Computed example of a mutant assay.
Amino acid sequence: MVTETPADLLARLIAIDSVNPDLVAGGAGESAVAGFCAAWLAARGFEVRLLDKRGGRPSVVAVARGTGGGRSLMLNGHLDTVGLTGYEGDPLEPCVRDGKMYGRGAFDMKSGLAAMMVAAVRATSGGRPRGDVILACVADEEHGSSGTEEVLESYTADAAVVTEPSHLEVTLAHKGFAWFDVEIEGRAAHGSRPDLGVDAIAKAGHFLVALEELGASLARGPAHPLLGTGTVHASVIHGGQEASTYPARCRVTLERRTVPGEDAATVEAELTAVLGRLAATVPGFRYRLVPGLHRDPFQADPEGEIVRTLTRHAEAVLGHPPVVRGEPFWTDAALLDRAGIPSLLFGVDGEGAHAASECVDLASLDRLTAVLAATVTEFCS
């Protein structure tokens, strides 16, 4: 069977609506694009399995079994995209201009899916390597990463490459995050009775000032060599009922971006210390700290075998040593690393992730595919 070019495959993937319904109510989800990828890979000799314990949110795992005795490598990319509303032009109609392909998901990250699918076929079509080649085309990365979590319940590998867009730069670290709600308690009363009421919104103002001071303190602290320092910001605030009533409560939702060495527990201790000082110094300050979703930061071993192998092939394809970098955003690489699978990120060049216009540089798509194919061939042999 003739294998499509990465650009041809990417165009077909862009045309399939796969908006994450956890982000956009009524979003199409991953069923159609997962079905397409499963059929495409099965037709090329891969053992294909759909994982869908959530129902209607499938991930695809496709395996080319090795001949035995070699190392296994997982290529991981996500099927879902952010929403289509507000996109300039038709987000599901791929178009090429000036060497770039445009469309929702072109950059983030159906380009990575196309590259890893074609690369895996190229690396196995001339004879299977000794180790297994595993493709994980996962659901829900843009929201809760339930797809990679489900894959890791049944599959492992000796290493993994996550094909998130990285501008053809070797990405060895990224930040994590922790979300918290701070619920500040007041006392409801008629607006004419300050002797009875406690203004929860005004009390929250003390916390917001302290949160800004915490952010400044973090910025002055020790910096990770690739990621810099952790950050914190207030994201959402809710409080009050009407103009004539003292608000009984005010809730501040915040996000703390973490670097290696920090996690949800250290952030909770940090916030507890801030809030404890306010409770001791601000009359009537009462609060409740509620942990939310958190994801760990990620850091690869720069001397790990998968890092050295991919970096060597990237240099050969690019004609120069690739840039080594960190990313401020979170990816599924952290889940793979936590499961004991040494990982790194390497993906296309382009722009417009989550933006009104999104594109991938097609030359970078070809280079990514070449690097991945060579990496699979060497690592799994």
Rank of each mutant, 00 (worst) to 15 (best):
G284R: 10
G45T: 03
T266Q: 06
L289H: 03
H206N: 12
M116S: 15
A339N: 07
L73H: 03
P302W: 00
A119C: 08
L23I: 14
A216F: 11
L172T: 02
G147E: 00
P322G: 05
G66H: 04
C359P: 01
E212N: 15
G35A: 09
F107Y: 14
D349P: 01
S31L: 11
G55A: 11
L92I: 08
G86C: 11
A374Q: 11
L41N: 05
F46M: 14
F379S: 06
A210T: 02
A334S: 15
P297T: 02
S72V: 04
V138P: 09
A43T: 08
R295Q: 13
G56P: 12
E183D: 14
D90K: 02
L345A: 15
S72M: 09
L50W: 03
T245V: 15
G112P: 08
V252Q: 01
A139M: 00
F207P: 01
A243I: 11
L318G: 03
A234H: 10
G186A: 03
V290Q: 08
P322S: 11
G70A: 08
A219L: 12
L172E: 03
G35L: 02
P194C: 09
L226N: 12
V371K: 07
G197K: 05
T85H: 13
L41I: 03
G126L: 07
A248Q: 12
L73K: 01
R251C: 15
G66I: 04
C250D: 02
A115R: 00
T369E: 13
D132T: 10
S31K: 13
V323Q: 14
D263H: 07
A374D: 15
D195T: 08
M109G: 10
T163R: 07
A28C: 06
A210K: 02
D199H: 15
